[in-house]
Design a protein around this nucleic acid. Structure first.
Lengths: 154, 154
DNA sequence: CCGAGACAGTCAGTGTACTGACTACTTGCG
DNA sequence: CGCAAGTAGTCAGTACACTGACTGTCTCGG
């Protein structure tokens, strides 16, 4: 007794949402390449030659996790990793031809999957939905890293 | 080039939302007990003596994952696990006194955390937000398990 | 009353995801 | 120039999350 209804807990619902997405992804997009892996390919398609840390920042993954994701993508031949000649700490990343092809192929399927995933909502609700999630996620991020980009302390 | 804006991808946003939640949880609720673990405690507080599979169903975790979560809770003394005398396949689970205390303590903190997590949204937006997530997640679940509970095939 | 199919739980394998400790390289300041 | 502080990446440890293969138990029909 004295138990709570988990369906009023955003954290619980967020987890369920991600599981639902994972299910649709593996059946409709790819069993080989995961959604975070696609995010990495996508980022490097837009900006080739980024270093590991920056890619992680773009897709929202910490140093350790992005390292693992990238090493898997390299193992499968989708990515190349070369030491930055100008800064020996960095590795520069770029897509291989295979990686580029995979990205193109998955882009199409991902769009289709997103449509079906959001199908239970009306068009206005879909836009609102994405906006609400973004606002909540961004606000929580601010708590970690105080918003220097808005109010630089004088 | 030809890259997509990840901020229009519900899957990407769902992941970011969960990360944001995880951050708030560990700082505001507990570093020891995770959100899925709390969900299990909560379920057993409401319905003591459930078996493992059913608990997993209630909190939305598959057999393998729920087994690990439960074994961690047992290791820490929050749960007891006894063979069902009436069905030798099942284990019946119930909270220990420690588990009950932990659940009570975390319930308070979780409520506080949820308020802060949702603070960027107005009250109406909060209700809407939870409702939208639930609808999307439920719909995707239906794709896995055809809705027997609505239309039983004649 | 016995055997086939269903069902609960375990185990191995893969893939996020985080923290905290460590290494190696760079940069800027004295 | 030379070292301290900062930064990029690695590594170990923990926890969730899924699939698919396997073990042990139960149940129902013949």
């Amino acid at each position: 007794m004295a138990a709570v209804d988990l369906n009023t807990h955003p954290g619980h619902l967020a987890r369920r949402l991600q599981q639902a997405h994972h299910l649709l992804w593996t059946t409709m997009v790819s069993e080989e390449i995961t959604s975070p892996q696609f995010a990495v390919l996508n980022t490097l398609a837009a900006e080739p030659g980024l270093d590991q840390r920056t890619v992680g920042e773009r897709v929202g993954l910490d140093r350790s996790t992005i390292a693992e994701v990238i090493s898997r993508l390299i193992r499968r031949g989708f990515l190349d990793k070369d030491r930055d000649p100008r800064d020996g700490r960095r590795f520069l990343l770029r897509l291989t031809d295979d990686g580029l092809r995979a990205h193109r192929r998955l882009t199409v399927r991902t769009a289709r999957m997103n449509r079906i995933f959001l199908a239970p909502l009306s068009t206005e609700e879909q836009t609102l939905f994405l906006d609400l999630i973004r606002r909540v996620a961004d606000a929580a991020d601010e708590l970690r890293a105080p918003a220097d980009h808005l109010v630089t302390p004088s």
